[in-house]
Every structure is written in C-alpha cells, then in structure tokens.
C-alpha cells in the first residue's frame, strides 16, 4: 500500500467556525481509488490526484465505483513496473489541485527509467507529466554530436538495423520451413 495517502474527511472540522466557511458548500468526503502495476503492490490514490490521468479519470467516470468496490477491484496496469507506477502516483499526489510548474526537476536521471516513465505516462494519458518527460529526454542529447546521440539513446546505424532485419527474416523463414516440415510429417 502506498505511503502517500491523502488527508480524509475525518480530519476536517465537524462545524464551521467562521462566517466565510459557513457560507461555503459542505465539504464532500474525498473518494479514493486503488491501482496496481506489474508487481501487484496496490497504491491508494485520491480521485483528485487521479484527475491528472485522462485514462483513469475516464475509467472512474464510466464505472461509477463506490469506495468498497474500488478497494475490491484495483485498476490493474500490468504493463507498468511497480516503481514506475509509484513515481506516477507520487507525482499525481504532489500536483493534486495545483497548477503545474514550468519545470520539474524530480524526474529520474537514468535513461531506462525515464523512457519507461514516458511510456507509462503516455499510456495513462497524463499530459503535463508527459511534457516534462519529453523535455527531459530531449535535454539528454542537447548539443551532442550524432555519435554521442547514438550512444546515449542506443540508436543502431542503418547498416546495423538492416543486418538485424535480415537476421530476423532468416530466422522467421527457418521457423516457417520447420513448421511446414512438421505439418507434412503429421499428415503422413
């Protein structure tokens, strides 16, 4: 369970103490939803924080879960690693109901993690975080030479690409031939 739980309505004062507050609408208890990644670790996230994700927000709107139902059926994101989902949940909690700043310096510095985060954020449709991530990926190669860019982003040359493609075709051809031979053997 995530340690970043939000304050619940039980912490709110039972009676308003000042005039302006009494004029305000009564505070609606915040609802929570549950998500888990590949590692099956369940994260509790408030509906407010999840608003950043267009995908989850759409799922919540369509399903109309009660809190009990949401607890019993966490949203599964099997294609997202647990640590990456934790990062996303933390970011959503930190930026809940706040305007997003122009820069975010808390993104991972390791390129594999950053690319993983980009894919996860793209899948979850979190527009603002995706912008930060794309900027961060771009900064990795700013001012670098083509050779340096190839090394940093692990881009194969066209010759390497063609060789890999040929190899894959050859392998596929052999596999197909093997399957045909096996089918012919079965028929006999």
């Amino acid at each position: 369970m995530s340690s970043t739980e939000q304050g619940t309505s039980s912490a709110a004062p039972a009676e308003p103490t000042t005039a302006p507050e009494s004029a305000a609408a009564p505070e609606v208890p915040e609802s929570f939803y549950y998500v888990h990644g590949k590692d099956k670790v369940v994260h509790k996230v408030s509906a407010g924080a999840l608003q950043h994700s267009a995908l989850i927000h759409g799922m919540i709107s369509n399903l109309g879960y009660t809190e009990e139902q949401a607890k019993a059926n966490p949203f599964p994101f099997e294609n997202i690693d647990g640590d990456i989902l934790q990062m996303v949940v933390d970011w959503c909690n930190q930026h809940k109901g706040k305007p997003t700043p122009p820069e975010d310096t808390n993104l991972p510095k390791q390129k594999e993690k950053l690319f993983d985060l980009v894919l996860a954020v793209n899948y979850l449709e979190i527009k603002e975080l995706l912008t930060y991530c794309c900027k961060q990926v771009a900064m990795m190669v700013k001012g670098k030479s083509p050779e340096e860019i190839r090394e940093i982003w692990m881009i194969p040359t066209d010759a390497e690409d063609e060789a890999a493609e040929k190899e894959a075709k050859k392998r596929a051809g052999k596999e197909a031939a093997g399957e045909t031979a096996a089918a012919a053997g079965d028929a006999k």
């Binding site: 190669v141 083509p146 860019i149 066209d158 690409d161």
Partner: peptide
C-alpha cells in the same frame, strides 16, 4: 541537435 539526430538513422 535536430540536425545531429537527423543523420543518426
């Protein structure tokens, strides 16, 4: 940087 990336592949 765009020019550098353009000739990578």
């Amino acid at each position: 940087s765009k020019c550098s990336l353009r000739i990578c592949s």
